[in-house]
Design a protein around this nucleic acid. Structure first.
Lengths: 191, 191
DNA sequence: AAAAGTAAAGGACATTTGTCCCACCAGTAG
DNA sequence: CTACTGGTGGGACAAATGTCCTTTACTTTT
């Protein structure tokens, strides 16, 4: 549920000496800081080194919808870079983070000149497609109780790591529904 | 709602002479035929030239969930190819189709040797991510009536092109709910 | 045209989820 | 200490959606 990509992070870290500091900049991000704002220009790609971020959309009606939780190795901003469009989602640090940041030019350069880097980006995009597809399919065709049960099986410490507020946004439901369902699961002994 | 990618199709068609027939094979597909089966090996990438296909997941409980409708220029099988995994979704022709098919090796070769081809694939994946993200966010945070209203605004001939059965799978709802909501929209004069 | 078979529409009720609101508790400013 | 604040949990009811089954409409057959 918190997505990671150690293969890519390892690759980047292993090659960091080949990428001068000025081009792959290591940054610390405070909790709550936005790596990307919605509907803004994105001019850098960030690879998460440490920490967790949420990637979410906010709708006209004020509700947030969290698409993914990003952990180490996940990449942020590449979609906007490729599409040459304003960001369609926002990304915000849920914990203190460190990220490796590539400028737009450097990202494009690596993409065209380093086939291994290019392949990592292709795979990572394919992974995002697959993740969204399976997650939304499941969420859409199962009740909240079924979805929550599965999430808690996959990640027993879910409720310690992700705030209820964020969980609510991730599932696209209300606080009330989450509380009610958690209560049911407890009464049934599933938690 | 039916996704297309004319830029990519134009590029492929314009370069077809450079790609020998044996390597970019043009195929006719009958309505109902599956371009990809779920949980199977995929050894070719298909670019849709004409016709419409549905890309869907089937779950354990027997329900289908349609992820996207693909039209001309959309690409099928590239995700499995990149991830080197069995297919996670199925793709089936809704109309008679023609597709341009690349073998695995040819796809990899173009990806590594043709930067323009590579860039098209990157963009196309980024587009799929964005499409899924915005669509699911909307569906999850709006009622069926709101979602249907928007779909009918975007595509007034929706009900003529897509069967109710497929619409139900696309929205992850039941036939009953669709009928009820359509009836309401008619009574309100929105259709 | 009548009968039979099949798919689509919808009524009645059940379940799931949302809305509104209140009670409770911890922190903290006055 | 008191009063205010923000966050959390949950009761009561409303709305949305699903399940089950009947009715309608439309083919096909005879």
């Amino acid at each position: 549920m918190i997505r990671t990509n150690t293969a890519f992070l390892d690759f980047i870290l292993a090659n960091q000496d080949r990428y001068p500091k000025s081009l792959v900049q290591e940054l610390s991000i405070e909790k709550g800081h936005k790596l990307i704002r919605q509907r803004s220009l994105v001019n850098a790609v960030s690879i998460i080194n440490e920490g967790i971020a949420k990637c979410y959309l906010y709708q006209d009606d004020g509700t947030d919808f969290i698409l993914e939780f990003f952990g180490p190795g996940e990449v942020v901003g590449e979609i906007e870079m490729l599409n040459n469009e304003f960001s369609f989602a926002a990304v915000e640090a849920l914990t203190p983070m460190t990220v490796l940041r590539l400028t737009r030019d450097r990202f494009i350069e690596l993409l065209t000149k380093d086939p291994v880097f290019n392949n990592h980006v292709l795979k990572l995009l394919a992974g995002k497609v697959k993740y969204k597809a399976t997650r939304f399919s499941f969420t859409q065709t199962h009740t909240l109780e079924q979805t929550l049960t599965k999430m808690l099986e996959d990640m027993p410490d879910l409720l310690e790591v992700i705030s209820k507020k964020d969980l609510v946004s991730y599932l696209g439901i209300t606080k009330r529904s989450l509380n009610r369902t958690l209560k049911n699961l407890k009464e049934q002994g599933h938690i």
